[in-house]
Design a protein around this nucleic acid. Sequence first.
DNA 1: GCGAATCGTAATATTAAAAGTTACGATTAA
DNA 2: TTAATCGTAACTTTTAATATTACGATTCGC
Lengths: 153, 153
Amino acid sequence: MKRDSRLSMVLHALLHMADHEGPMSSEVLAKCMCTNPVVVRRTMGLLREAGLVRATRGAAGGWELAVPLEGVTLRQLHEALGEPTVFAIGHKNEAPGCLVEQAVNAVMDDAFAAAEALLLERFAAVTLADLAKEFSARFAAHRSGVKARIAKG
Amino acid sequence: MKRDSRLSMVLHALLHMADHEGPMSSEVLAKCMCTNPVVVRRTMGLLREAGLVRATRGAAGGWELAVPLEGVTLRQLHEALGEPTVFAIGHKNEAPGCLVEQAVNAVMDDAFAAAEALLLERFAAVTLADLAKEFSARFAAHRSGVKARIAKG
DNA sequence: GCGAATCGTAATATTAAAAGTTACGATTAA
DNA sequence: TTAATCGTAACTTTTAATATTACGATTCGC
């Protein structure tokens, strides 16, 4: 299976939107994400349903944040995307008749549930504002790197 | 993507093998796992390379455990399978030029790394013997359920 | 040694899920 | 009125896992 990259995509999109006056079109966002405008509409549409973004139609329309950066966690976004399957590892049969397989499933489920709980907890602890801060730090580092290279010759 | 069900499969297979005198053929195991003998050979082959099982060829050959149940953890099996990708959620681009996307990837990676570490820790804490115990408990419960149903009707 | 059962493995096909694409109607600003 | 835009359905492509076919190599029992 391909991996679901929608969370990654919307985070990227939302940060760009936060740093942009007025709405951004699906077309522009798609270019920026290396994807397709329809994919952007489909995915952002889920965030719209969750009240996290606004879409305006017609000329000069597009997508805008509907909430402050501090008000959105990765977990909320994950939920807005429909809480997609987290693990690429799973059972051979979800509801086996074999008692051996039932025991296997039960024990594996315990471990996966614990890991998923931790992941969601981490997601809940990170807001878009935190991400923006992380970006700023990288931007500053990048700039000083460029300056150093220029000074060096 | 389909989810990787090999860990589930080998656990099921190993427990059946533990409960069986002499080697079990890929054909028999495949029936039991609802899969194909070649898939069994391919997957068990990885465990053989890790020294966890033995294969004997020729008539009356097949697969056997090479270590005691107490000596194998889920983590060892996961490793023997080549430490397959744990998460079905991933980045849009692994090595983006965009600093925004780099920040997104970095923050997501932190969360995923923590969750994966916990999962592997859990895996390391469970041996095949523990699974066998879990099975026994289920078997006992199942038996008493059957008895009750027989007594009742 | 012979034949049947079995593993080892390469090559290919199938399947499931994500992502991409095409198409077109609805809406809105200028 | 026109052009830009979202909303959405239908379909195609891509990717990774799994399944299948095929056949050589090995081993057991005779």
